[in-house]
Design a protein around this nucleic acid. Structure first.
Lengths: 232, 232
DNA sequence: CTTTTGGTTGTACAACTGTATAATGAAATT
DNA sequence: AATTTCATTATACAGTTGTACAACCAAAAG
């Protein structure tokens, strides 16, 4: 950040200390382990927010710590370095995405109309993910505008897999004539870009159009437009 | 940057001093004015590159100066502050875009088929701009992922106008049945996102797909895919 | 209760940040 | 040739940065 906000730690402390042991019959003498995980998670969530809004270089570990309501030295304690914290954040994002977008290919033969409905549902699910977790695309876009060791790492561990899965999805739709027979990689970026931008650029949308992409009605209108354009 | 690269100024100096007066019959005793404008332009171009790849906070004025091959104090001399340099860069981008995408509405009545061809040509022109000047979208995306005084300024002076022009374009296509009757603002972000992402994320594309969006063949394949999807 | 463990805090440091100002010297003017 | 102008440079400063480490102290173990 390095802008205003004189720094204000001690925001979590109270709420996190609440409930020393919800389960009276705690299986083990955790309570400390519990607090530890809460701190660890708070740092990760803060990192997601600050990294996604400021980029790696623009984000400072002290800003992240302040956002988490935690002393900045704890970042080194839990994640060793800014770079490893970034990697932990990216890992979290892609593992969550894999979990939430888990593919369940409906076995058995399907009519073309059924497959089209299936494709529409899949597209809807993806847009919903983008809408609910805009920090994912924000963080990745900031890293993908230039080549770097971080982009190389993210590509090797996550982006490559996700991209080729998307390519397979596109090719399947092309086989059914649901997408034009054009370059599959190009279509991947066309669809992904079309789905993400509305939520990634939400602050701009709010200023320019006076509408909130996070709003249920607005979001449904966007999804409908997207599906109408892509899955004919 | 704050990463590696120990800093290496003095890269321009020589090439910029070349040609003290190309025109032997110089109209006035410029030569100094000439060098001044060269320095000013070098700083602006460097700012475009560094801001677009690192974001405002992630970019340092010293990095920009080094990229321009100029002493860092000259940034204050020519642009007064980092913030004003950023505004100058954004102004340059949008004025160039307005110039290159100047609308020439073909007078006289047109058949629907002709209007469709017109729409395809307009879309092609826009994608070409994105491909040739990826730093434009990169810089703006970095600012639009969060609300800030800079986004507010850019919205007021440029983004609002450009967005509403795009909306008018979309509504015209909808009237002809060339785009589905969905939310126009949503369609704007769908089309813009679909057109930009392939070039904005070019470093990622190169790593994942081993293809270069700047390559003529690859670019044409992307444009064809885009037109096939949107203008039916 | 006493001791040990380890999550937390305070503090330090060198490098980097944006900004400011005086010194410099070559081009322009006289 | 002497003088003025002003683009460029050198240098400085306070604030921020990532990282490091010793001191602290509540929870866990004895």
């Amino acid at each position: 950040m390095s802008t205003s906000t004189p720094s204000r730690p001690a925001a979590r402390r109270k709420t996190a200390r609440v409930k020393p042991a919800t389960t009276p019959q705690a299986p083990r003498p955790n309570l400390r382990e519990q607090q530890k995980e809460a701190t660890r998670a708070a740092i990760l969530q803060a990192a997601l927010l600050v990294f996604s809004e400021h980029g790696f270089n623009g984000a400072s570990t002290r800003d992240i710590a302040a956002q988490a309501g935690v002393h900045h030295a704890l970042i080194k304690y839990y994640y060793q370095s800014k770079d490893l914290l970034w990697r932990a954040a990216v890992s979290y994002l892609f593992e969550r995405q894999a979990k939430e977008l888990m593919f369940q290919p409906p076995a058995g033969p399907m009519t073309r109309a059924a497959r089209r409905e299936e494709a529409r549902a899949a597209l809807r699910r993806y847009v919903l993910y983008c809408a609910r977790h805009p920090e994912h695309a924000r963080l990745m876009v900031q890293e993908s505008v230039r080549d770097s060791a971080r982009l190389q790492w993210a590509t090797k561990h996550f982006i490559s897999n996700a991209s080729h899965a998307a390519e397979a999805f596109v090719r399947a739709l092309q086989k059914d004539g649901l997408l034009p027979p054009a370059s599959a990689p190009a279509l991947v970026y066309i669809i992904v870009g079309a789905a993400q931008s509305f939520y990634t650029l939400a602050p701009e949308v709010r200023r320019v159009w006076n509408m909130d992409p996070a709003d249920e009605t607005v979001m449904n209108a966007h999804i409908d437009a997207l599906v109408a354009v892509f899955i004919r």
